[in-house]
Design a protein around this nucleic acid. Structure first.
Length: 306
DNA sequence: AAATCGGGCAACCGCGCGCAG
DNA sequence: CCTGCGCGCGGTTGCCCGATT
């Protein structure tokens, strides 16, 4: 019947770690590795929960961790990846050697999100706040969508760079908002790419016009050399950038756009399995066209380079 | 110099998934 | 097949410290 409890929760210490505890944990992990965290506290002589030990090790004691400030390049990468992945901090941190998901998350919450707001960009959707306000205003006077129609534009923004690239010809002269230069003045006149679930589903509802690339095609484009993209269309699924499916208002599995949405999601998940997300991200980042405004523009051309 | 405020960060909490028993 | 733990993850909290009044 199950496993024994990992630790006596009434007897474990909480709160900040002391140098002595750090030394014990480090000494143990350096000689024995980090195989089974539940046994680590006892073996290392610590009155801590294994979970706490793991956290302390991965966020602070692990070798090769960077403890200095984030560089401009790291900052840019975080914003770009957040625009593509949402708050999947572990995936983002994987692209930043020496940084932990906690580091990235804290840095985002304390610095980068504020910078984006100062620039008039919503840090959640990466869309200009003015446009969001306009959407809200439009939504307020918009009649309920007819059955089978695309959902209202209040759904979470879908920031998938490869898909952006595939739809670029539909959104010429626009670009993904990734500029975070807090010193530069906000540019309300600049045009930004504003693709979101609504765009995606609306495209699907329109049957992908003869010259409109299907999302599957977009996936196939960036999945070249891998397994066939989007072979399954299954109900349900999770929003991209929403690992737990906990974000409000997605509704991708219930409305009539669910087929396209879930197919796209499944394809993303297929990618995860087939080629590994890390590799995928690396490929996307290696090709500026994925997140550029077309014509292979680089991140610096998007305003990153200061 | 003291009090207050706000930012930054380490750590905790709770959840989902996979798997051992 | 069922139960419950291990693990990993994202969200949140609370403490510490520097800046400001």
């Amino acid at each position: 019947m199950g496993r024994p409890p990992c630790c006596d929760k009434a007897n474990v210490k909480k709160g900040p770690w002391t140098p002595e505890e750090d030394a014990k944990l480090l000494a143990y992990t350096s000689t024995h590795g980090t195989g089974n965290w539940t046994s680590v506290p006892q073996r290392a002589g610590l009155k801590r929960c294994g979970k706490s030990c793991r956290l302390r090790y991965t966020n602070y004691l692990r070798p090769n961790l960077k403890h200095e400030n984030f560089t401009q390049e790291e900052e840019e990468l975080i914003v770009t990846l957040h625009a593509m992945l949402g708050s999947r901090w572990s995936l983002i941190a994987n692209q930043l050697p020496g940084r932990t998901d906690n580091d990235v998350k804290n840095y985002w919450n304390t610095k980068l999100s504020k910078k984006l707001r100062q620039r008039g960009i919503d840090p959640i959707t990466h869309r200009p706040i003015a446009d969001l306000m306009q959407s809200i205003g439009t939504l307020a006077i918009r009649p309920p969508p007819a059955a089978g129609a695309a959902p209202p534009p209040c759904l979470p923004v879908f920031h998938d760079a490869p898909y952006f690239a595939a739809l670029q010809h539909q959104h010429q002269q626009q670009q993904v908002v990734t500029h975070v230069d807090a010193d530069a003045p906000a540019s309300p006149d600049s045009q930004h790419l504003q693709l979101n679930w609504s765009d995606f589903l609306a495209d699907d509802a329109a049957g992908h016009g003869a010259d409109a690339p299907a999302p599957q095609a977009a996936l196939g484009q960036y999945q070249e050399g891998s397994a066939p993209a989007a072979t399954a269309v299954v109900g349900g699924g999770r929003a991209f950038g929403d690992v737990d499916g906990a974000s409000a208002g997605v509704g991708a599995g219930t409305d009539d756009g669910a087929g396209a949405a879930s197919a796209f999601i499944d394809a993303i998940l297929d990618c995860d399995k087939e080629m590994g997300v890390d590799q995928l991200i690396a490929e996307m980042l290696a090709d500026p066209a994925y997140y550029g405004g077309g014509g292979g523009s680089s991140s610096s051309e998007l305003g990153w380079g200061c």
